[in-house]
Design a protein around this nucleic acid. Sequence first.
DNA 1: CAATTGACTTGAT
DNA 2: TATCAAGCCAATT
Length: 130
Amino acid sequence: MNSSVSFNQLVYALVRRIPPGRVLNYGRVAKLLGVPHGARAVGWAMSALKSSDQSVPWHRVVNAKGRVSIKGSPEGAAEQRARLEAEGIVFDEHGYLDMDKHLWRPAPPDVEAIIRGARGDTDASDSDPD
DNA sequence: CAATTGACTTGAT
DNA sequence: TATCAAGCCAATT
């Protein structure tokens, strides 16, 4: 039982670990998951989220410029910003937040653990196949 | 299996 | 800071 997990599930697992008041951008999520250029794929995963999946703090994922990037739903964008402000994040007059100040920097080992957990390989007996 | 799509990113203007 | 083009990825049809 293992890598049968969709990329989306990995994304959700990681986003779920983003602490309040912290944010992550699409490209960073992709990179942490081992796909340096999968930013768009991460965005796709987020768009696939249902309103019922409130276990995933989707509002903590913004674009690389530190700005809310939801398209086709001004309401959704407003909600995302409101949730972030509720966590203490401040947006400037242009709608940007300070990435250097709020970007979440998880330790690599922690990220690996999250990924392994999402894959269900909480055991992972084998050291390093290949 | 090929074409489409989209909450992206980077570099140049 | 805003806009444009090109590159990259996974899920969907």
